[in-house]
């Protein structure tokens, strides 16, 4: 379902050694799995996640998503892929301020030709499934970290993607919100979605189907359950 070979991301700076954020990574994650990529700070987990989610272009290597090689896809094709098949939950939520939560959640649908009322209905349904129906008209800056995180999940799921990526989803929320989040992700796994999470949280490691450990940009250990 998700595969990469020789995947590398280097940051080249003048007169300095290049930083190999991701270095020659080979990885395979089957469909419907909950995979956790973990490692110490600066190990390259977030960069690898962003590369797999098409949010960055790799310096070298190949990526397959849903059995299609996407390495040489145009920016337009990659964007279409994100719109149709990929959801991403950011560590800092990345919700748009000063606009309602429902509109934030509906943003991925809005340029697809759907009417605003239909987009709103779907956003409300998605927010409802995250327990945020009564917060739909609130702007994100008025909500707690946990509520913002759930809104970010609602946005990532509104177009019903096959692949869901989450970057350190519990790092900015309290223990209770963290537990709720774990429940939600497990529910999604049962629904057949493929989940890739970059996290240090032991709670995730306990429920993961696969754990990929990274160090200095390289995969150093893999564990399958």
């Amino acid at each position: 379902m998700i595969r990469c070979r020789g995947l590398s991301q280097w940051y080249i700076q003048k007169e300095l050694e290049p930083i190999r954020a991701v270095d020659e990574v080979d990885l395979q994650i089957p469909k419907g799995a909950l995979a956790v990529i973990t490692g110490p700070s600066g190990a390259g987990t977030t960069t690898l996640l962003c590369l797999l989610a098409t949010l960055m272009r790799p310096t070298a290597g190949q990526i397959w998503l849903c059995d299609e090689e996407i390495t040489h896809y145009s920016e337009t094709a990659l964007t279409r892929l994100r719109r149709e098949r990929i959801g991403f939950i950011f560590q800092d939520f990345k919700l748009l301020p000063f606009t309602s939560l429902w509109r934030n959640v509906a943003y991925p649908l809005l340029p697809t030709g759907i009417s605003e009322s239909s987009a709103r209905a779907r956003a409300l349904s998605s927010l409802g499934s995250m327990g945020l129906f009564d917060r739909a008209e609130h702007p994100p800056e008025k909500l707690s970290g946990g509520q913002q995180q759930r809104a970010a999940i609602a946005r990532a799921l509104i177009h019903n993607p096959e692949l869901l990526f989450a970057d350190e989803p519990t790092s900015n929320v309290d223990a209770e919100a963290s537990e709720q989040l774990l429940d939600i992700l497990q529910r999604l796994r049962h629904e057949g979605k493929t989940l890739v999470v970059a996290s240090h949280d032991p709670a995730f490691l306990n429920v993961a189907d696969e754990i990929h450990r990274m160090s200095n940009g390289r995969l150093c250990a893999e564990e399958t359950r």
């Binding site: 949010l55 920016e75 337009t76 964007t79 279409r80 994100r82 719109r83 149709e84 991403f88 950011f90 990345k94 748009l96 943003y107 991925p108 340029p111 946005r155 177009h159």
Partner: peptide
Amino acid sequence: REVGILKATGWQT
């Protein structure tokens, strides 16, 4: 930052 978020959520250029 907003343009980045829009692009990340599937908005074309």
